[in-house]
Write a protein that binds this DNA or RNA. Structure first.
Lengths: 337, 337
DNA sequence: TGTTAGTATGAAATCGATTTCACAAATGGG
DNA sequence: CCCATTTGTGAAATCGATTTCATACTAACA
């Protein structure tokens, strides 16, 4: 392995001191034209590239941020990661990808890791657990929450307008005559999902429909097969009892996909025998059988805004206001209702 | 911002020297029981966490690797990233995510960045361009290519069995009576796509069908709208001329999605009026209208294998054989043929 | 009991950059 | 023409860990 060329080598080659070389690298002080070109030529000749790790040790800045998300294979998070990454690279930062898999232990493990690696900041889609521990690990590292928030940790946040989107989507359902809604939700209590439920309830109340008439189907694991099974069994039972809802509202894209499959298993015609609305739109909902109505979240933009927020704060560390940015959602009506 | 606690503080608190603290941290030499517990208690009391950046400077290892892929929002790459990340975290490494967006300039920019950050290794899905420059930038950093390869850069690679998968899929088409195939491809010459074409050609030849009867539709930009437009126009023309193919074979998932939309634009019944086969399966192809037959690549496993390969090589730097791992593909027949 | 081998430890060097400090040379104002 | 700035430069300190080296102490053996 050929030894890395260091700033020392450059200084020697250019016939000057390391201080001067460092000055031309960082532009932190004036250097005479002659010396500058000598250094630049030496750098080019030797193919020198300053070591970020040495630099970081001295300057206490690594120019890297950690991105903790549930699961990058979920299109919502990959779009979000993309947005964040674009903003990061544009401003000279790199991004460490961490999949927490909604596992609180992995979440803690990863937080410790990025903290030990001295990232300058963290963008964090929390599982919702370990509030106190997280606050303690993160300490004073700048942090922006995405999608969800944790009360114990003081930080800025970028979230979607969950309640508003759910409200407008539910209104759309109701206006089309779907008055009996079934809500497909995930078991763990999460602020995000709670807001969506609130939005639906608000729509029901606004149309004088009792919210008790909209049962919530709770799935414990969000894995496709499980969702499909649970929804199918729940629906079968309700159909037999004769009090099935006329439309289902799935609270995220994975629940939506599982619900779609369950409906197809039961041979229910969408949208005639059962309406379907999903929170969190996917490109593919446009080409499913039938195309599915959904509430679209600006995932990419959320990532970008979160990263921008974080880097702005890093670059001018004056006020660190923990503001919450709420981005609008869009209801897209397709053939499923 | 409260000052970070350093190894010096721990040494003072434990009433010993930094050398001894370092020894209990790394376990590199024996330390008496008494001192060890004193140090451990001091560490716990102060909440000390050793700085990875200082450690890296000294040991020349950062325990981080760069992952360069085309676009993380493409499900193939996000599954691949997931596999790679799992293996990385399991072995104590972290991963920097870099989207090259198939832009050779961004690719170079990112390679320079991860090299300057002194990553221990790189997992690289190349655009195919800048062979010589890449070799020069990467220098002696261990590297594993994924999905595609570059001749100029000596490195191991993990790829899918493109030719075999395409061959078997084409056979399936031919057996079902689709003898006139249209191949939807991307314009830039890429080894991966070339192999897929080769597989299709081999299937045709094996069934005594001249390969000239299988025209290739070349799309310049892989963006959904563009694919849709090009395929639609091409097909319209062929239908009018009366020599349209009986089935289309799209060479990756994005081309497949665009092609599906084009077929729906034209109102062609799948699979009766036109068959459809896509290389690179997506979860969603199961619920499209109609469900689409596809060749599945083991994306997650590819990522995992690439990472395992890389880390194995980092951990025992003996033989660095640049072997090519070919993982099997699976043809999944659904209602589109 | 004297010599030797082994164990535990701390002082100091090191990794590769940035930054402070001291100082010489150049510049400028009166 | 002298003193006060300004400018350019290199030596040395620094960041926070690991590792080498020297040394004091123990245990073991003849």
């Amino acid at each position: 392995m050929p030894k890395q060329v260091t700033i020392q080598d450059v200084a020697r080659e250019a016939g000057t001191s390391v201080s001067t070389v460092s000055r031309v690298l960082t532009g932190s002080a004036r250097v005479s034209k002659a010396k500058r070109v000598a250094v630049e030529e030496a750098i080019a000749r030797l193919g020198f590239r300053p070591s970020h790790v040495a630099r970081s040790l001295r300057t206490h800045a690594t120019f890297s941020v950690g991105l903790l998300v549930n699961d990058i294979t979920n299109p919502f998070f990959s779009a979000l990661a993309r947005g964040a990454e674009e903003e990061a690279i544009r401003r000279g930062y790199s991004m460490m990808l961490c999949n927490t898999d909604n596992d609180p232990d992995r979440e803690l493990q990863y937080l410790r890791m990025v903290r030990d690696k001295r990232v300058d900041g963290i963008i964090f889609g929390p599982t919702g657990a370990n509030g106190a521990q997280i606050a303690q690990i993160v300490g004073s590292i700048p942090l922006v929450m995405i999608d969800r928030r944790i009360d114990e940790v003081p930080a800025a946040a970028v979230v979607a307008d969950n309640e508003g989107g759910a409200y407008r989507a539910a209104c759309a359902l109701i206006q089309r005559g779907y008055h009996r809604l079934g809500i497909v939700a995930w078991l763990p209590p999460m602020e995000t999902l709670a807001h969506r439920v609130t939005g639906i309830h608000r729509a029901l109340s606004g149309h004088d429909i009792p919210i008790e008439s909209a049962p919530i189907i709770r799935v414990s694991r969000i894995e496709p097969k499980e969702v499909r099974r649970v929804v199918r069994e729940w629906l079968t039972e309700r159909l037999e009892a004769g009090d099935a809802p006329s439309a289902l509202f799935a609270l995220n894209n994975q629940l939506g996909l599982g619900t779609l499959r369950a409906l197809r298993d039961l041979g229910l015609k969408i949208p005639d025998e059962m309406g379907l609305m999903v929170f969190d739109d996917l490109e593919f909902f446009e080409v499913t059988l039938p195309p599915i109505s959904a509430v679209a979240m600006p995932a990419r933009q959320m990532g970008q805004r979160a990263m921008r927020h974080l880097l702005d704060r890093l670059e001018k560390p004056g006020e660190h206001l923990h503001e919450v940015t709420v981005l609008p959602t869009e209801v897209r009506i397709r053939q499923s209702i």
